[in-house]
Nucleic acid binder design. Structure first.
Lengths: 201, 201
DNA sequence: ATACATAAACGACAAACTGTTGGTTGTTTG
DNA sequence: CAAACAACCAACAGTTTGTCGTTTATGTAT
């Protein structure tokens, strides 16, 4: 799906890893991860089993590497946004992320929404919470949040978990909304106590 | 940790299952789940390996059963709350849940916060989102959210994911806040409809 | 185009794990 | 006490896991 070719890597390596990763995603669609063995992956990829060990220590290691690449891709998607430091830009970043996910829906549905691959959601959670954290530390919290006595780290936990959880649910429900619409909903929801202060008591 | 004795079960069954479950939680603290075999569990529990298969089909099956029991316990904790249909009661339910978790911190830290046991977080997410959903359908959404054009199901995803994610982060950080304090933070943060319904708007 | 480097394939291995069997010992309960 | 049944035990075939050394095939640089 995505191209991870680094400077001057032997094309055989690219090919083998690509085949292995595709086979793994394939199998993940068909069966529980507990039933996936190196044997099956190699077989499906039409690669010798021993060759697998030339590239990955074991299956969890393979998943780690794939998660690394996923984070890179997400980061790249986020970086496509113009670096204007504003709320408006946050919305754009989010939109870019959602569109990137939608474009690679097969992959993300399998690794994020399928029930048994926490590594990926873990990593994405970290990515998002770092982002939320940076934003808060840069701009500080909303006045009404500070007034209300909301703890900064709790706000970070809350916000990033809400984000990733919603995206996962969106994937699990076959993406019933467009990225644009969902991003818009986020801007409405994310206001949290903010819009409470605007209209509420 | 918790007592799941049903009416008139052979005490040997109770004992064996208890030992197996404890051994499993123990091992889960020490190593990645991929490295845990029926062999190890039985050995640690000082139970014959064959006996394991008398009670569980395999390890995932064992985890499913344990997750069932977890949900029962959580439900029980929630049910301790007086059934007054009000925002106030929602806060109480949440507080009871947090206190139940804090009381069984070892168990919940291992199964919820450890990186590789999605069954449990899955089930808890379902529990919470059902609860959130019920509230919304009972009281409807906050007026200002309706006005803002927020989609009901998205609000449910957002709210329940925020809840469970925050609780998991709280566990992962060694519970730096008391249940009471965290519950209070929730009441401050949740601009979401499900809790704000009656007095908000 | 040839030669060198190296990736992949192949056959094989011990060790561990998985599920399942039949038979035996031990405990609970009526 | 006796019937019921849970747990133990030895053993099994089949699978999976990592890891050899060796050979074949492919890519790269001269």
């Amino acid at each position: 799906m995505m191209d991870h070719s680094k400077p001057r890597t032997d094309p055989r390596i690219i090919r083998t890893r690509q085949l292995l990763k595709e086979a793994f995603i394939d199998l993940l669609q068909e069966m529980e991860i507990e039933k996936i063995s190196v044997n099956r992956i190699a077989e499906r990829a039409t690669i010798n089993r021993v060759t697998f060990y030339l590239h990955y220590r074991d299956i969890p290691d393979m998943m780690d590497k794939m998660a690394d690449e996923m984070v890179e891709d997400m980061q790249r998607a986020l970086d496509e946004s113009p670096s204007v430091d504003s709320d408006r830009n946050d919305s754009l970043m989010l939109l870019n992320l959602l569109e990137h996910i939608a474009d690679n829906a097969k992959f993300y549905t399998v690794v994020l929404a399928s029930r048994r691959t926490p590594v990926f959601t873990e990593r994405m959670l970290k990515l998002l919470s770092d982002s939320v954290k940076r934003r808060i530390e840069q701009f500080g919290m909303n006045d009404s949040m500070v007034d209300a006595g909301i703890q900064k780290d709790i706000a970070i936990w809350y916000g990033s978990a809400a984000l990733i959880g919603t995206i996962v649910a969106w994937l699990r429900n076959d993406m019933p909304y467009t990225p644009v619409y969902l991003a818009k909903q986020f801007t409405l929801l994310r206001a949290d106590p903010q819009w409470r202060s605007v209209e509420g008591g």
